[in-house]
Amino acid sequence: MASGLVERLRGLIGGPITSAFGCIVALLLLGSLYSSSFLSPEYLLQQLKVASFLGVIATGAMLVILLGQIDLSVPWVVAVGGMMATAATGWGPWGSAFAIPFGIACGVALGLLNGFGVAFLRIPSMIVTLAVNAVAQGLMVVHTGGFSPQDASSPAMRFIATGHGLLGIPNALLVWAAVGAGAVFVLTRTGFGRCVYAIGNRERAAYLSGARTRLVVMAAFAVAGGLSAFGGVLLAGYASKAAQAMGDPYLLPAIAAVVLGGTSILGGRGHYLGTVAGVILITLLQSILSVMQIEEWGRHLIYGGVIVAMLLLYGRAAPTR
């Protein structure tokens, strides 16, 4: 048992997780050449706060990728979560009290639709999630009449997104820590987590071993939808309102953060610590490129190049778990 733990730790230390954290250190050192504030506790805490929104969304993306699937409905599920939560605040005190769970529930419903299409209708996840993304977009256009949403976020949404808790730690970071702790527990200590890894390695073998693979796939997509919607709730609280395109910047970064952290795009292999490293890496990269005042086309070129390079190095390994 002890030797197995040693081997597991050795795999964590010697793989892409170490490389991702190494890149984080390199980015901080590079940024410190432009401003000493890059290494200040205030700057680091602010970056972790910004990373929290992406981290919550990437947690759901990781769950789906571990299955060997992909979720391309993230942009509008994020928007649905934020827009429905803010819409609920216009229904009076009760609506404001239930705004956060209502936004999350809408995301879970869309995730269940994704999961049903993949698990029972056997539609490729890329196709069904794109379709659900389009459906969500259409529903939100109907809801708003094509105009920018006028509803404001509730005090509770603003508190968890912008407030500070113990020792001045941002509440958003505490929320991400809680979500991450829950994800680690589920993936490493529950039968559901073991089934997720087993399905990602070989779904047929998992089915023949007695796993209820279709229900696990549906549940995983539902959780991913709920977390994407929760990310939208946090973003709406951070900005005090929702916007129709609020989820657009999070599709590629969420998937890239998961894969950059060592989770196989083929499914069946990955550790949540790697996703944490990937989220922080992408957040720092975006921040530093902005501070360096590189032109927009240059930012996209460097940002995309770094992601592609690391995906080529670590993103195509076969499942080994």
Rank of each mutant, 00 (worst) to 15 (best):
G182S: 05
A20I: 09
M246L: 09
L251K: 12
A318N: 07
Y34K: 08
D151Y: 03
W76F: 15
G115N: 07
F53V: 15
I65C: 09
I169M: 04
G262H: 03
L208P: 03
G55P: 14
T89I: 08
A257K: 10
S73V: 11
T275Q: 09
G305S: 11
Y303F: 12
L251S: 11
G200L: 09
A131G: 15
L289E: 02
T275V: 15
L234I: 04
L29K: 01
V216A: 07
G180M: 15
A20K: 12
I160L: 11
N114T: 09
V259M: 08
T89K: 01
G146M: 05
T188E: 14
V196H: 01
Q293L: 12
A242V: 02
V64L: 01
V216C: 02
M126Q: 09
L12E: 14
G278T: 14
V233I: 06
C195Q: 15
Q286P: 06
A254N: 09
R189Y: 08
G11S: 14
M140L: 15
G267N: 06
P253C: 12
T162F: 01
G180D: 04
L12A: 08
G95S: 02
E7P: 05
I104C: 05
N114H: 10
I104R: 12
L273E: 02
L30Y: 11
S209A: 15
A119L: 03
M84H: 00
S264A: 10
V118E: 02
A134N: 14
G270K: 01
A20T: 13
Q293M: 12
A256M: 13
G60R: 07
V118Y: 03
A222D: 00
I100W: 08
S73K: 13
G4P: 01
S35L: 10
S96T: 10
G261F: 04
Y250M: 08
V216S: 00
V233Y: 14
N171Q: 01
Y207D: 04
L285G: 00
A183K: 01
V118R: 05
L251R: 12
